[in-house]
């Protein structure tokens, strides 16, 4: 509760500062609109923003779900076989060296202007952090516990299912918290490169028509969406860690 009060206080302070800068400098609204003007634009265009936010939210959530499932099902076999890890991990790191932003035009070319290319962007951007965080959790089970499991005659599959995976869930939660912040970046970059809907598309459209207040309002919607997603995933991740 105290944390929330601080957050509200800091946001109010930033808004006041912003409004103050606009008043004092008299900067034109198409360069920097005042927060008041952004709020007015947000209210006036609420249906437009909501429609596009829904598209971006769909891309982000689909990307998160697919990226998480892919990350998790990659991490489990990697953690189960040191040899597989030696072969696959360098490949994964190599793919991380390719900037995802540079892939956006190619993905749009291959998958079109629809939701698919943005979902793939979001998946690409979160896949590695999720895989890596879950893998770390799976391989950091205390050696004593694994020794005990071996003396009990535990099978490899059951040790994975009943010890390693439950032990790694808090680590997976950490990966998901990162993913919640990264996934919208992937979706919006995808929308910038080529889309007919979504908050990224709306921002570009507003910018091109010098409707800077609408651009800021769209950006605000994106920030709120990302924060809500982060909050929801943090709650889910905390419950994973508390079991």
């Amino acid at each position: 509760m105290i944390q929330l009060r601080y957050a509200v206080g800091a946001t109010a302070f930033a808004l006041l500062l912003w409004q103050g800068v606009v008043w004092i400098t008299g900067v034109p609204a198409f360069i920097l609109p005042s927060p008041l003007r952004v709020a007015q634009a947000a209210i006036a265009n609420r249906a437009l923003i909501a429609e596009n936010a829904l598209v971006t939210a769909t891309e982000v959530i689909l990307g998160l779900m697919i990226g998480t499932v892919l990350g998790a099902i990659t991490a489990v076999p990697l953690a189960g076989s040191a040899r597989l890890h030696r072969v696959v991990m360098p490949l994964l790191i190599f793919t991380q060296a390719v900037p995802v932003f540079a892939l956006a035009p190619i993905l749009t070319l291959w998958l079109g202007y629809g939701v698919a290319s943005k979902v793939v962007m979001a998946v690409l951007i979160i896949y590695f952090p999720v895989t890596s965080a879950f893998y770390d959790g799976l391989t950091r089970v205390p050696a004593d516990i694994l020794d005990m499991a071996r003396t009990m005659g535990g099978t490899k599959g059951q040790i994975m299912r009943r010890i390693k995976i439950p032990h790694a869930l808090p680590s997976l939660g950490t990966g998901l918290r990162l993913a919640a912040v990264y996934a919208p970046i992937g979706a919006v970059i995808g929308e910038w490169v080529g889309a007919s809907k979504g908050l990224g598309y709306l921002m570009l459209l507003a910018n091109g028509r010098a409707k800077t207040d609408l651009m800021f309002a769209s950006l605000l919607a994106l920030v709120v969406m990302t924060l809500l997603l982060h909050l929801a995933i943090t709650k889910a991740a905390d419950s994973l860690g508390r079991r």
Binding site: P142, I145, M148, M152, G153, T155, Q158, R162, I163
Partner: peptide, 20 residues
């Protein structure tokens, strides 16, 4: 070496579970 996510009873029967 108790597994923190399992109850006392579930920890006690861990061996059988691990053997499937």
């Amino acid at each position: 070496l108790l597994l923190p996510w399992l109850s006392v009873l579930e920890n006690t029967v861990l061996g059988a579970r691990l053997r499937g």
